[in-house]
Nucleic acid binder design. Structure first.
Lengths: 162, 162
DNA sequence: ATTTTTTATTGAATTTTATTCTGAAATATT
DNA sequence: AATATTTCAGAATAAAATTCAATAAAAAAT
């Protein structure tokens, strides 16, 4: 387990909501020098605590209006996807989880519409070995969608100006 | 529908994988002036095509080892969550989708472990009005997890140095 | 087809920020 | 307590962001 002090947590908290916050802004916010910030951030990146900086793009702007979750039941035979995880390399997929229970995989995928989802299942998913069955859940409306984690901040001990 | 030209798409594509890429780097990559890049990016932000810049933090570093999906069946009564979407404000949740089918909501949530998930369901989820039943799926292993969209680039017409 | 209007781009100037480095302070180790 | 290690601040420098006026290109209107 990696130990993160309150300063690290506040950096993560600020960056989580705004990946492009400048070091000087961070420094002002925490009441420290920009150089110290930079060193902290570099360390968080090197240790893999910060995994990546991503831009969230409006799916509608790219005409990806449909969001679906697909449960995949697969055989556990030696050459099946259960063994080689080949599912994760299919195009258009956002997430693939190996899950407990009857089903084996849960896929999150965006496509233009239901037609193109069917097309994807026929043309792409069908390439995968060992799939026994699928069950598709269509999203009607997304109420919340974030990758943010809950960060345990111990109140604002060293609260700052502004 | 918003029209995005190939330059916009390439900007989105580059920023999607590296939100913090500098304008000058972008400019070099696309063979344009940094100021032109800035204007494009600003426009993409203002139009809401770029929704946000996020930092992905390793959940393990924050001791959030468990990932789960919860299907929630709710009544459609006037005071139920089906009407007020109150589910989305529960702490610790990453996603809430309103889905087609028997169930009403799909929740994505991270917690420390299964104990704390049960605790969350007893202490937080139970506050929500109108829940008829829940079905929880535990993730054993995540093979892929991204928010990236597939961007339709028309090859590299204006390919550049480096 | 021509003019007008709008939009997009450049390049230089300016401001802001990132980055490096050195030494001091704090912390941990022995 | 002495040593080693880590963390931080402050100054100096390099790099990048940002602004802006002028130009070019595209679109719309006549």
């Amino acid at each position: 387990m990696i130990e993160l002090d309150n300063i690290d947590l506040r950096i993560l908290s600020l960056k989580q909501d705004n990946a492009c916050i400048s070091n000087s802004e961070l420094a002002k916010e925490l009441g420290m020098a920009p150089s110290a910030m930079l060193e902290r951030v570099r360390k968080l990146e090197k240790k893999g605590i910060i995994e990546s900086y991503n831009t969230r793009i409006n799916p509608i702007a790219l005409n990806q209006k449909l969001l679906a979750f697909i449960f995949v039941k697969s055989s556990t035979a030696p050459n099946s996807c259960w063994q080689d995880n080949s599912i994760k390399d299919l195009p258009g997929i956002q997430e693939v989880h190996h899950i407990a229970g009857d089903d084996c995989f849960l896929i999150k995928i965006r496509t233009e519409d239901s037609q193109s989802l069917v097309k994807w299942m026929r043309e792409e998913l069908s390439k995968i070995q060992g799939i026994i069955s699928t069950r598709t859940t269509i999203v009607l409306e997304t109420l919340k969608e974030t990758t943010n984690l809950t960060i345990p901040l111990t109140q604002n001990e060293n609260a700052q100006q502004h």
